[in-house]
Nucleic acid binder design. Structure first.
Length: 228
DNA sequence: CTACCGATCCCCT
DNA sequence: GGGGATCGGTAGA
């Protein structure tokens, strides 16, 4: 199975993946740091899912940063609870939660041990294992670029759920973060905007532009507000 | 294309 | 007991 995806050759995300070396697990330093910094850093890196269906690879094209108890949009705002324990743990772990009673969302825990922080994976661009992604999607007729264009769609396409809560994304054989040797996403090609669906946090926190995306990607969950 | 709405259940107050 | 870091179907412009 190769990394060359996009049969049409029109998907910017797949084109990014075309210049690649072998997949290498990312270093722990990548996920250690402030959520906002890690959120930007994770753009362009790969999420790899290895299971009975084979290997699925997807490029992270959209992220959001969530901080600790001071961040009124973060699940950590209630402090350390049964659900958010992982957010206070070491960086590189998966924080997976259920929203609206039916959708899962995947986060990469960051910051440092003892501090809470996480990066929500809001969208990924399929690179390989597309049939497997389709098989696990609730709406399999989507165009390839839209198969994982959203946080819950990402979890569907990669078959991620609460079973994966707490696993180590730096070393787990079934779900891990990888680099293919591509360049980091340069600031000029990075979109910035307010986080989605967090109005409950109040203007102070909902107004923070902690959502990041790769400009031109066909796999964004939704457009970024203009004036970015 | 945009707008609305129901689904569905775990978590925290 | 209230509401949500969403999605997908349907209705209407």
């Amino acid at each position: 199975m190769t990394l060359a995806a996009d049969p049409a050759g029109t998907d910017l995300d797949a084109q990014r993946g075309r210049r690649h070396g072998p997949l290498v697990a990312i270093a722990s330093g990548v996920v250690a740091g402030e959520p906002v910094v890690v959120a930007r850093r994770l753009l362009g890196t790969l999420l790899v899912r290895d299971d009975r269906r084979g290997r699925r690879v997807a490029r992270i094209v959209e992220t959001e940063a969530y901080a600790g108890p001071e961040d009124m949009a973060s699940h950590a705002r209630a402090g350390r609870t049964a659900r958010t324990t992982v957010m206070f743990g070491p960086p590189g772990r998966a924080y997976v939660y259920l929203v609206y009673g039916m959708h899962h969302c995947l986060n990469v825990v960051c910051a440092t041990d003892g501090e809470a922080g996480a990066v929500l994976i809001r969208a990924v661009a399929p690179v390989a294992g597309i049939e497997a992604m389709r098989a696990d999607r609730r709406r399999p007729t989507d165009a390839v670029a839209r198969l994982a264009a959203g946080p819950a769609r990402t979890c569907q396409a990669l078959d991620v759920d609460r079973r994966h809560d707490g696993l180590d994304l730096l070393s787990d054989p079934s779900l891990w973060l990888a680099s293919d040797g591509g360049d980091p996403v340069p600031a000029p090609t990075m979109l910035v905007g307010p986080r989605v669906g967090v109005d409950y946090a109040g203007p102070e926190w909902a107004g923070r532009r902690w959502r990041f995306g790769i400009a031109g990607s066909a796999s964004l969950s939704r457009p970024f507000p203009v004036g970015g």
